[in-house]
Nucleic acid binder design. Structure first.
Lengths: 305, 305
DNA sequence: CCAGATTCATGCGACAAGCGAATGTCTAGC
DNA sequence: GCTAGACATTCGCTTGTCGCATGAATCTGG
C-alpha cells in the first residue's frame, strides 16, 4: 500500500519545472518559493522511486524517467481539467444527461413540446426518454435511476420517500364516438346521456378517471371491453363497439373515423398530471420541470384552481 | 487560480465510496475512519463545486455530477498506475528507450553485436541508433539528447563536462593493398616497407592514427588522395591508386579485390575506441555499456594494457 | 586566478491540513 | 417509541508544507 498523500501539486510542480527548465522559474510561475518546488519535486521523485530531473549548474533537465512520466502527467492534468469543465457545463446546462420518464399518453404532445423547447435552449444536454406506467417511473425516480418523470393516472398512493410531485395540469377528457353515433356531431354532451353506452377501458381498476364522475352523474358505466393500448381502444370505437374517454392532449393523434365530443363542464372528468422529481433534483431536471409547466399552461390554461 | 492542494486521496476516497456505496464501508477498505472519508469527499465536493453523492439513510448514491466525475477519476487513477508501472519497467529494463550514437565504422560489428545481445536480454527496451562523427555524439551526450555513444577517432580533446569516457578496446589497423601488390600475399608487413606508397586518407588532419606510428617508423607518408567514405577509399585501393589503413573490426566488410595484411606488432597503429556516457547514465545505458565491454573483449582480447 | 551571480539543496520555525476518537443527527425497522 | 445504522461535526494531535535564510556547486567576467 504505497502512494499515500500524493497531492496534485506535485504533478503541477513537475510539469511547471519540465516546462520552465528550472526550479526557480517554475516557482515564480507557480507563485511558490524555489524551496517549495525543490521539495515537491523531491517528494515526487521519492514517490516514483526515480530521479526525474538531472540537476545542472544552470537549471535542470529531464531524465529518462522524467521523459516517461511527462506525458502521463500531462494526460492526468488534462483529464482533470476536462472533468472540471464537464462539471461546470453541468451546472450551466451546457452539457450532461437528463434521464426522463413519462407514461405513454404524456408523450403525445406535452413531453415532446417541452423537450423541443429544452433542446432549443440547452442543446448540449442529452435527453433520454423512457415510456412506461407511472408507478414504474415513480420507483425509478425514487431509486435515482431517472431524473424526472411525468406521471398521471396513479396519484392515489402517496409518492415514495424522496420523491415530490409537482402538479402540472388537469387534463379534461373527451368522449370518443364512432362517426355514425347519434351524438357524434354535437358540441358537448352530458355524461348522463352516455349512461347506456358500452365503455371501453384500459385497466378495469385504474379507470378511476371514468368511474368517479360517472357515479356523480348517476350511473355505473358498463365496461365489457378491455383494451390495453390506444390503437385497440379507438379501433373498437371506430367499429361501433362502444365509446371511450380520450385525454384532451391526445386529441390530435386520434384516427379520423372517430369523433371526439366535449363533455359538459359540470361533469367532465379530469386527469391529474404531475411531474415526479427527486428531493434534490438535477439542474437539468429543474429546468425541464419549468418548461413542462410552461408547456402545460400553454396547452391548457390553468383556469381551474 | 483555484485547485490547490488537491490530494489524490480525495479521488481514491471518491472511487472507493462510489464502489462501496457507503462511506463507512469505503473507510474500512481504505483503512481510514469514516470521518476521514466523509471530509475527503466533502473536500472534493467543495473543490468541484457540486454534490457528488446523495446522502441516504442507508448509505450514499452517486449524483449526476458524481456519475460525470466517475469515469474521469477512474481514468486518472489508471493513468497514474500506468505511469508507475512504466517507471518500474524502466528500472527493471523491461521497457524504456535507449538512444544510442556511434561513429560510422563502429557500426560494422561492435555496436550491432552488442545491440543484438542487448535485444536478446531486454526485448522491451526500444533502442534507437544514430550514426555520425564522434565529436557530434560527444556533444549530444553532453546535451542529454543521447544516452550512450561509441566514439573513436577523436579522443584528443578532453571530453565535455558531464561526459565520461569508458575505454572499450584498442583496435589494430590493417593495411589494404590492391590484389596485385607485391606485399599482398604476406602475413605481416613492417610499416617502413610501405614508406614509398601513396596513402589514401579520410580527413587529412584527423589521420593521427597513421601519422604517429609512421613517424616512429621513420617516414612521413605521402597523402595525395582524400576519400571521405569507405567505398571511395577502398575503390581507390582496388584500382591500384594507393594503400590505406582499415580497422580490424571492419575487415569482414571489405570488398574481395582488396587484400588485407597485418602490420608487425612493433609498429601497428591502434585506434582507441571508447564509450561516452553521461555522468548519471540511464540503467539501460549502463547495461549496454557492459555488453559493449563484453563484445569488445570477445572481438579483440585485451592483451595490451 | 579570483570574486560575483545564479541555481539547487537544506535547516528552521510557523501555520494549516488531515487523521482518529467521540459525539450529534437523522432515518429505517421492529 | 426505541434501538441500530449511517453520515456529519467537534476536538486535540500528528504530520506535512510553506517561506525565509543559508550552504554548496558552478558559470561568468575582470
Amino acid at each position: 500500500m504505497a502512494a499515500m498523500h500524493v497531492s496534485h501539486g506535485l504533478y503541477e510542480a513537475f510539469l511547471a519545472v519540465a516546462r520552465a527548465g528550472s526550479f526557480t522559474a517554475a516557482a515564480h510561475t507557480l507563485g511558490y518559493t524555489q524551496s517549495a518546488v525543490s521539495r515537491q519535486v523531491q517528494s515526487l521523485e521519492d514517490e516514483m522511486g526515480a530521479e526525474l530531473f538531472e540537476r545542472l549548474p544552470r537549471g535542470v533537465r529531464l531524465t529518462e524517467a522524467g521523459r516517461v512520466l511527462l506525458p502521463h502527467a500531462e494526460a492526468v492534468r488534462d483529464r482533470l481539467a476536462a472533468a472540471r469543465a464537464e462539471l461546470a457545463s453541468l451546472r450551466t446546462l451546457d452539457g450532461g444527461l437528463l434521464r426522463l420518464g413519462a407514461f405513454s399518453s404524456a408523450t403525445a404532445s406535452l413531453v415532446p413540446r417541452a423537450q423541443a423547447a429544452f433542446r432549443a435552449r440547452h442543446p448540449g444536454v442529452v435527453v433520454t426518454r423512457v415510456e412506461g406506467p407511472s408507478v414504474k417511473h415513480l420507483g425509478l425516480v425514487a431509486a435515482g435511476e431517472e431524473d424526472l418523470a411525468v406521471v398521471g393516472p396513479a396519484p392515489a398512493a402517496p409518492p415514495p420517500p424522496g420523491v415530490t410531485l409537482h402538479h402540472l395540469l388537469d387534463e379534461p377528457m373527451l368522449v370518443a364516438l364512432a362517426q355514425g353515433h347519434p351524438h357524434a356531431g354535437r358540441r358537448a354532451v352530458r355524461l348522463a346521456e352516455l349512461a347506456d353506452e358500452e365503455w371501453i377501458v384500459g385497466h378495469e381498476r385504474l379507470e378511476d378517471t371514468l368511474f368517479r364522475p360517472a357515479v356523480a352523474a348517476g350511473f355505473r358505466p358498463r365496461t365489457g371491453l378491455l383494451a390495453h393500448d390506444w390503437i385497440a381502444k379507438l379501433g373498437a370505437v371506430a367499429a361501433g363497439l362502444g365509446v371511450t374517454l380520450v385525454p384532451a392532449l391526445a386529441a390530435a393523434s386520434v384516427r379520423r373515423d372517430v369523433a371526439l365530443v366535449t363533455i359538459h363542464p359540470d361533469d367532465v372528468p379530469y386527469r391529474r398530471i404531475c411531474a415526479a422529481a427527486p428531493s434534490a433534483p438535477t439542474v437539468a431536471a429543474t429546468a425541464f420541470l419549468g418548461l413542462l409547466r410552461e408547456t402545460a399552461d400553454e396547452l391548457i390554461p390553468p383556469t381551474r384552481s
